[in-house]
């Protein structure tokens, strides 16, 4: 978004097993994105062309549940390199829609059902090239420790904006993390 300067906080956003709706909602910050760009460098995410999760990230928003081996590996990488990790949106927080497949059986069974039995795919089941599915989809906090939860499907742009402001204020001031849960029902809601 902008050139790196030393006094800006480093922000990453990550897209695991989700629909990218949380990122869309993030983009709905619209003109507030300019204000955000004054305060942070976006160093990783679907909006950048960076392939490897960088070091020394201050704040990482993680959208999506942990559904496959790539998700899992990236989750561990981002945890190891982030000061504050936000479980961002219902898929990250609860598994949400992504986890609906947990009721449909083992990954092989699932792949056969979705791809193998599909009439127009000639029985092609993706078992290579794409990352292998984990036995079950898990919420992010089952895999790595989480600092802040921001539920919603997706969280509204207003909710994201308020949360980011509080988090960035705290990080810039070197204070403890704010409690996002104490701020009324609008700032905390599944669905």
């Amino acid at each position: 978004m902008s050139g790196s300067t030393d006094d800006k906080l480093r922000l990453a956003t990550v897209w695991l097993g989700g629909c990218s709706g949380c990122h869309m909602s993030f983009l709905d910050l619209d003109e507030k994105l300019f204000g955000l760009a004054e305060r942070v460098d976006v160093v990783f995410g679907p909006l950048t062309d960076v392939k490897v999760f960088p070091e020394d990230v201050d704040l990482t928003l993680v959208e999506g549940a942990v559904a496959n081996e790539d998700n899992l590996e990236l989750a561990h990488q981002l945890r190891a390199n982030s000061r504050v990790v936000v479980s961002f949106g219902d898929c990250a927080v609860t598994g949400n829609v992504t986890s609906l497949r947990n009721r449909l059986g083992e990954p092989d069974e699932l792949l056969q059902r979705v791809y193998g039995d599909a009439p127009d795919l000639a029985g092609q089941v993706p078992r290579s090239v794409v990352p292998a599915l984990l036995p079950t989809v898990q919420p992010l906090h089952e895999v790595i420790p989480i600092d802040v939860y921001l539920p919603g499907c997706p969280p509204s742009a207003e909710r994201i904006g308020r949360a980011l402001e509080l988090l960035l204020d705290a990080l810039e001031a070197g204070e403890g993390l704010p409690d996002l849960t104490g701020r009324g029902p609008d700032d905390l809601r599944f669905g």
């Binding site: 479980s87 219902d90 927080v93 609860t94 949400n96 829609v97 986890s99 609906l100 919420p139 906090h141 989480i146 939860y149 921001l150 539920p151 499907c153 996002l180 849960t181 104490g182 029902p185 905390l188 809601r189 599944f190 669905g191």
Partner: peptide, 25 residues
């Protein structure tokens, strides 16, 4: 899963989570 529920937005369990500050399970 609120996102796929017919009662999302009109659900007492969803409201209880919000008013009692349940942000994850």
């Amino acid at each position: 899963i609120c996102a796929t529920c017919v009662s999302s937005g009109a659900c007492e369990l969803q409201d209880l989570a919000a008013t009692n500050r349940v942000d994850h399970i």
